[in-house]
């Protein structure tokens, strides 16, 4: 067999696998997965707000529920104890609430 047939055949197999993966995605969405719909039902039933990805501290376990100072609970400007802190930004809502107030107060601070 010619080397070109081998090489092109190999590439064709890889392309076919990729097309299958893509075809699979376009047919299937998260809504079709019984696992994910069951999880959504669990969220609705228990009223969950966060993923259990980081369980070591309250502001990494529930980033959406954390208060403004939880990441700096020991003293202002304290370095983060937990490695997840470097993977997890402060929630946007927390930083935005400050931006929200800036320049909008009627009385001087």
């Amino acid at each position: 067999m010619r080397p070109s047939s081998l090489a092109l055949g190999f590439l064709a197999v890889l392309v076919a696998i990729c097309l299958f993966i893509f075809g699979h995605f376009f047919r299937l969405t998260v809504e079709d997965s019984p696992k994910v719909t069951a999880n959504r039902a669990l969220v609705e039933k228990l009223g969950l707000t966060d993923l259990a990805l980081f369980t070591e501290a309250r502001y990494t376990r529930h980033p959406t529920q954390a208060d403004l100072h939880s990441a700096l609970q020991d003293h202002p400007g304290a370095f983060d104890h937990f490695p997840s802190g470097s993977l997890l930004p402060p929630p946007a809502i927390l930083t935005q609430s400050h931006a929200h107030l800036a320049g909008k107060t009627t009385s001087p601070d």
Binding site: E31, N39, V43, E44
Partner: peptide
């Protein structure tokens, strides 16, 4: 991201916390 968005779309519409001295 897709899974979190889909699943957490079922979370409560509003959660109300009480804050005392900047803490929950």
């Amino acid at each position: 991201r897709t899974e979190a968005t889909f699943v957490l779309a079922g979370s409560p519409e509003v959660i109300l916390q009480r804050m005392v001295a900047g803490r929950h």
